[in-house]
Computed example of a mutant assay.
Amino acid sequence: MGIFRKMHGLGNDFVVIDTRESPVEMTEARARAIADRHTGIGCDQLIVIGPSDRADVSMRIFNADGSEVAACGNATRCIPLFVGRDVLIETQAGLLDASLTDTGASVDMGAPRFDWAAIPLAYAMDTLAMPASWEDLPPPSCVNVGNPHVIFFVDDLDAVDTARLGALIEQDPLFPERVNVNFAQLLDPRNIRLIVWERGAGLTRACGTGACATAVAAIRRGLATGPVTVTLPGGDLVIDWAPGGTIRMTGPATSVFAGEADWESFDV
């Protein structure tokens, strides 16, 4: 039997497993089975906490479809709450510094990357205002914040078919590793409304890396000035970034309940 905790950041929910003392083999099939909301525990992402030689803990992230990804901002905010103190976290995206706040955590998410090969895109192009679009959407921006994001700034978010277009764009051949799709409406230079189609998970109540990527793209385009409040269906995140610097994300994190499970029972 293994112990887990169910946690969420603005409704983006996680099953968090601590393997620092009791290792657990995690495969794509097992992660997918655990994440299933009907026959498993149910979550948007499965988070595996382990030991690290470079930081306080390591973190692996599996989407609901079983695919492993390098970054998840909402999950990162949950880790200091899970551990019970400020922590340095080793991820595939690098070392992330996360500190507790009164309502959650504040995380240094590292520096964004803008080069087309770092997104990655299938071929070279300007990532500030891409010479590509889909249907009636305006030309987007692309940002890598540990994982790839494409951001569309639209006039009326409610008029966009986010589920259909998100699924279409995620799988577009322009994005060889697929992509997180962000639909954003600028309310004013300090406030952005955002809906995210998350790679491997679909529409989500909140996406921390999506909020980071969107705020960075807005600041880079001269549409916004940090700190920016990004309002997602699950609530607000505050994102601060200045060109040449790292991204600071602040927002809630919540522990819902703890439980025990036999991880081998999820093999399919």
Rank of each mutant, 00 (worst) to 15 (best):
G226V: 00
V145L: 01
Q45Y: 09
G226I: 01
G244K: 04
I47G: 02
V83W: 14
I79D: 12
A211Y: 02
I151A: 12
A118T: 06
C43A: 15
A117R: 14
R205Y: 14
D44K: 13
S67N: 10
W134L: 11
I151Q: 05
P138G: 10
R20V: 03
A206R: 09
P139G: 10
P148A: 11
A159D: 14
V238L: 11
P173Q: 08
T209C: 08
L203C: 13
A75P: 05
D56R: 11
M125C: 11
R5M: 09
G73K: 07
F14M: 07
G244F: 01
M59P: 00
V216N: 04
M125P: 02
T229M: 10
M1E: 08
V230L: 05
D13M: 11
A132N: 03
W134I: 15
G208R: 06
R190P: 01
R199A: 13
N147T: 14
A218G: 08
H8T: 06
T127W: 04
N182W: 05
P148D: 09
D56M: 09
A70F: 03
L88T: 14
M26P: 02
N144M: 01
A163S: 14
P189H: 06
I61S: 11
T254E: 14
G226S: 13
T229L: 11
G11P: 02
P233E: 08
A33D: 03
G244R: 02
P51M: 05
E260T: 15
D262E: 11
D44T: 13
G202K: 09
D36V: 04
A206K: 08
P112G: 02
C212E: 01
A167H: 05
L165Q: 07
Q45V: 10
A124C: 02
A29I: 09
L96P: 04
A35Y: 07
R60F: 00
A206L: 04
E21G: 00
